[in-house]
Computed example of a mutant assay.
Amino acid sequence: MDSTAGDDTAFVRFENVQKSYDGEALVVKNLNLDIAQGEFLTMLGPSGSGKTTCLMMLAGFETATHGNIFLDGEKIDNTAPHKRGIGMVFQNYALFPHMSVAENLAFPLEVRKINRSEIKSRVQRVLDMVELGDLGDRMPAQLSGGQQQRVAVARALVFEPSLVLMDEPLGALDKNLREQMQYEIKHIHEQLGVTVVYVTHDQSEALTMSNRIAVFEDGVVQQLASPTELYEHPKNAFVAAFIGENNKLIGTVTEANNGTCTVQLDNGDVIKASAVNIDGVGSKTTLSLRPERVMVIPEKDMPDHMENVFEAEVLELIYLGDHIRTRVRVCGDDEFIVKVPNTGAGHHLAKGRRIDVGWSVADCHALDAS
């Protein structure tokens, strides 16, 4: 799949890149991907989808079986990793345990023969940036996991690289600290304007941090777009299911025209949807619908724009503070989720109660049947 941004000013470019470890199966299949200077691009996908392999080829730790990789217009396929001038942040921090924090940060500068006074000022500058300005004399073992990860980020930035690669850097942190670090890395990126290529399997992390996200599956970029575009307009059933929560209904297309279609489900219910990725009348399709786009409709209060309305039975209610996660039986599906906003008044939902639920054509996407 061609995933290029379509211009000749790409800072990072993958050109027809393939990777095989055994000479037969391709882990990465014909990747064409352009990354702009200053962009924060996330490679997102499940384990084995090819995203980490792409990062390792860019870093120089793996070699492409076919194709070329360019950095700032220069082909880097035969350039040693340490000569690519790339900062790296890994999940396991990879700090030297026998060196202090300041010594860890000074190391990449000493290797580059930077003078001593410049090293001292740069180390202090990045320590202040990650809010560890007074911990330079500490040893890594004396720091918390979050502090160690901050040092790892600082070490990747201290020699002022034009490109920083991050491989699941927050995977070892607890939920609250992980969320805090997401915002910190995002703010550092905005402050410095450095190009970041980030790998994760966590879709909420990708949505929070990225300018664009490349969704990988089976060695192919399934969709490359902004977080908003991916969530609101998934191009296929895999992306719809992988990015955010998603109700999935399977049916057959009975009509299609002017960008909309009519779909008959196996239980006989008929739904009108936006035709995004269908094969035409008579073909199977997966309907994708976000739980927060489904409305519980008060009796005798039918919104004008609600083209799809069905009676549902409440099976389960989970109170989550800002909303009530409501599982209902509707359209032959017992796992259909509705996120009902907690407005205080509520709809007096109760297990076993029958309610009307509805959604618009625009919010219901007819996608491929896979």
Rank of each mutant, 00 (worst) to 15 (best):
212 R>L: 05
264 Q>P: 00
247 N>I: 10
162 S>D: 15
267 N>C: 11
183 Y>K: 09
240 A>E: 14
198 Y>W: 10
231 Y>H: 04
224 L>W: 13
157 L>T: 06
158 V>K: 07
151 V>G: 06
201 H>W: 09
193 G>C: 12
219 G>T: 00
221 V>Y: 04
219 G>A: 04
217 E>C: 01
171 G>S: 07
209 M>Q: 05
175 K>I: 04
197 V>I: 02
222 Q>W: 03
167 D>E: 11
244 G>T: 09
216 F>Q: 00
212 R>D: 00
149 Q>S: 11
158 V>H: 12
268 G>C: 00
147 Q>A: 13
259 G>V: 11
236 N>Y: 01
240 A>D: 14
170 L>V: 09
235 K>H: 14
147 Q>N: 08
212 R>A: 09
231 Y>T: 02
182 Q>A: 09
145 G>E: 01
147 Q>R: 12
190 E>T: 11
222 Q>C: 06
215 V>G: 07
254 T>R: 02
228 T>Q: 09
182 Q>D: 14
237 A>Q: 11
243 I>S: 02
161 P>Y: 01
238 F>Y: 10
226 S>P: 10
252 T>Q: 01
178 R>M: 02
151 V>E: 06
266 D>G: 13
160 E>P: 02
207 L>H: 03
230 L>G: 11
190 E>W: 03
227 P>L: 06
188 I>V: 06
220 V>A: 02
244 G>N: 11
166 M>H: 04
241 A>Q: 14
152 A>Y: 13
234 P>I: 11
185 I>T: 08
178 R>L: 05
154 A>Y: 12
239 V>H: 05
163 L>F: 00
162 S>Y: 07
221 V>D: 04
245 E>C: 11
238 F>H: 01
228 T>D: 03
154 A>H: 13
225 A>Q: 09
209 M>K: 01
162 S>M: 15
254 T>Q: 10
206 A>P: 05
228 T>S: 08
253 V>A: 02
213 I>T: 10
257 N>T: 08
205 E>L: 15
260 T>P: 11
159 F>D: 10
209 M>W: 00
252 T>C: 06
175 K>A: 11
172 A>L: 11
261 C>V: 09
218 D>Y: 07
169 P>R: 08
179 E>C: 12
186 K>F: 14
173 L>S: 04
256 A>P: 05
156 A>P: 01
202 D>T: 02
211 N>M: 05
220 V>T: 03
169 P>V: 00
176 N>W: 10
165 L>K: 05
264 Q>I: 03
260 T>Q: 15
203 Q>C: 06
165 L>A: 07
203 Q>R: 09
266 D>W: 03
266 D>R: 08
250 I>M: 14
247 N>V: 12
209 M>G: 01
156 A>V: 05
207 L>I: 00
161 P>F: 05
196 V>S: 03
259 G>M: 09
224 L>S: 07
259 G>R: 04
186 K>L: 13
179 E>V: 14
173 L>W: 05
192 L>W: 15
188 I>Y: 04
197 V>N: 07
236 N>L: 02
194 V>Q: 07
148 Q>W: 13
242 F>W: 11
172 A>H: 01
161 P>R: 06
194 V>E: 06
206 A>L: 00
